[in-house]
Design a protein around this nucleic acid. Sequence first.
DNA 1: GTGAAAGCGCTAACAA
DNA 2: TTGTTAGCGCTTTCAC
Lengths: 342, 342
Amino acid sequence: MATMEEIAEKAGVSQATVSRVINGHSGVSERKRKLVMEWARKLDYQPNRTAQSLKNNKSNLIGLIISDISNPYFAEIVHAVEKEAAQNGYNIILCNTENNLQKEKESINTLRSRQVEGILIVPSDKSAPHLKNIKNLNLPIVVITQISDLFSSVAVDHAKGGELIAKHFVDLGHTNIGYIGPGNFEGHKKEDKLEGFIRGLNECNIKLNKENIIINNSDLPELSSRETYKKVSNYLGKNKKIATAFFAYNDLAAFEAIMAFEDEGYHIPEQIAIAGFDNTSLAQINRPGLTSISQPIKTIGHIGLEVLLKKIDDINNDDENIILEPKLIVRNSSLGFNFNQK
Amino acid sequence: MATMEEIAEKAGVSQATVSRVINGHSGVSERKRKLVMEWARKLDYQPNRTAQSLKNNKSNLIGLIISDISNPYFAEIVHAVEKEAAQNGYNIILCNTENNLQKEKESINTLRSRQVEGILIVPSDKSAPHLKNIKNLNLPIVVITQISDLFSSVAVDHAKGGELIAKHFVDLGHTNIGYIGPGNFEGHKKEDKLEGFIRGLNECNIKLNKENIIINNSDLPELSSRETYKKVSNYLGKNKKIATAFFAYNDLAAFEAIMAFEDEGYHIPEQIAIAGFDNTSLAQINRPGLTSISQPIKTIGHIGLEVLLKKIDDINNDDENIILEPKLIVRNSSLGFNFNQK
DNA sequence: GTGAAAGCGCTAACAA
DNA sequence: TTGTTAGCGCTTTCAC
C-alpha cells in the first residue's frame, strides 16, 4: 500500500506536507494541495491506522466480548453495538468466549495488547473474581445485559423480569410452578431472574418447590449441548406431580424444554404453560408463540457504547448502572393452557 | 501500560534485552532473564501489538464482513470463524453491512487501513461491480457462503440445494409449486438457489409458473423489515390458484411467509407445504419443524479461514472454489401436507 | 507555506 | 552476552 512518503516523492513535496493535506490542515498552498490529492487518489492511498494509532496513542478500537454469539439475542447485541460503534468512527474486535472463563481472561489481555480504548463485555459470570483484577487496570469497561457492581453497566432489571413472569403465571391461576435454568441453588452462580421469580411468587404466597427447579449450569454453548433437554427429560422421568407452568431463563432453553416436554408426550401449551426470556425472533416466529420478557436490545447497545465512550473520554467519570425496564410479551405458550384438563 | 523501556529501566538492562527475553530469544544470561521476567510480571506487561504490527508489517488481524449478523445463520458463521481465527493467533474485526453495498465498500477500505492481513466476506451481492476493483489490490480475500468467480470461495452448492427442494416437492406429488425470495427475474440479481430450483423442476417436467414467484429483493435486514410478509400477503390477495408448495430462499423468509399464510387462513403444513434454506436453529425448534437445506457451517468457517491463511502465506496461491454438499433435512412443514383436502 | 526532525513501542541488524 | 541504532508510517513541533 502506498505511504505518505511515496506520495511526497511523486508530488515533489515533503512527507509533512502530505500529512497536512491528507488531514485537511490549513496552511498549504492550493497548488500543492491539489497535487498531493491527485497523487493520493492515483495511488489509492489509505492511511495506515496502525501507524496513526501508535503515534496518537488512540486506536479507535473497541473490544466486544460476548459469551455466546450463537444465541440470537447476543447476535442482536453485536449488531447494535457494531452499528453504533461504526457511527462513532470505531471498529470492533470481536471475542466469543463460549461461556469459558479462561477464554474471557485471555480475551481481555489480547484486547489490551491490541490497545483497544475500551471493552464492552457480556460476562459469563458477573461475579467471577478475575473481573476484580481488571478493575484497577485503568481500562474503560462497560458491562452490558447484566447489572454490575464493579463496572458501569447497562441492562434490564432481570429480577423484575422474573417477577413479571411469576405474576403472569399466578394471574392465570397456576399454583404448581417450576423454573428451568442456572441458579444460585446448591452453590451455583447467582441468577437475578430466578431470585426475582421467587420473590414474585412469594408475594403471591406461592412457594417455588425445590423439586420443580431444574438447574442447568452448563457452560457449553446453548443449543448444541442439549443440556436443558436432558435435564428436563430427567425431571419428567423422576417426578409424578410435575408443575403446570415453567419459566425458562432464556428463549433457547425454553425451546429445548418444549422439545423435551413434547417428546415425553406433554402438549404445549395445553398441558404445560411455558415462558422464556429475551423475546428473540424465535419467540415470535414459533407456533405457539413463546411468552417472553423483551429486552430493548438496540437501546442496550446504544447506551452501552455511549457510556463506554464517556468513560474513554474521561476514565474518572463515575460508574453508572443504567437499568432498563423489561417488558412482558404474552403469547400462546402461556395463554393456551387448559385448566379444565383432567 | 508498561513498555519495554520501563521494564529495562527497572531491571537495569537495555530495552533490546527486554525484547529478547519477552520474545524468548536465546543469548541472554539467566540472571537478566529472570530479572526481566520478574519486572514484566510486576508491571503486568502486555506487548503493544500496534507497535509490533507496524514494525513487523504483520497485524494478525482478519476482517470479517457479514451482510446481516441478525440472521442466526450468519451469526453461526461468525462464531465458527472467530473460533478458528483465535486458534491461529488471529483476531477478528467485524463489519456488518446490513446488506448495504456502500457500507460494504467502506468496510473494505477501513479494513485495509487497519492493515488486516486478509478478509473473509459474505457479500451482499457477489456480482456487484465494486468487488472487481478490490481484485487487483493484492489483498487476500475469500468469499464464504457463496461461490465466487473472482475470489477463492467456500460454500455449498446453492443450486444443488434448490434442486433438492424441487425434487422433494415433486416426489411428494406437488405440481403447482412456488418460490419466495430474491431472484434474477426482471433484472434482479442472480440467485443460484432459484436457478437450481427451476432446473430441478424442469427435470421433472414441471414448470415454475411466473405468478408463483414471489420476488423479494429487499436490502433491509431480514426479520425487521417484514418485506417477505408483505409480499406474500400481496400474492395471496391477488391469486386464486395459489401453489401448494413453496420454497423460501432462507429460513427467516420461510417463517415470515408462514406467518403471512396463517394470517390469511391457510394452515401449514396441511394446506401449504413449505421449505427453507440454511437449516438454522429456528428450523429445528419450530413446530412444525421446517424442512430446510443444511449447510455445514463449521466447515465453511474452518475451511474459509484455512484458504485465507494460505492466501496470506502466499498471495500467488491459485484461487480455489471449495464446493460443499448441501443436505436436505426433511421435517413436517413439507411432510404434513394433506393431498386429500378438497 | 514548507521542510527537517523527533518520537510513538517495537524488532533486528550490527558492533562490541 | 549485551547495548546501540535504524526504521516501520505517521503527527506535530520547530525553524526557516
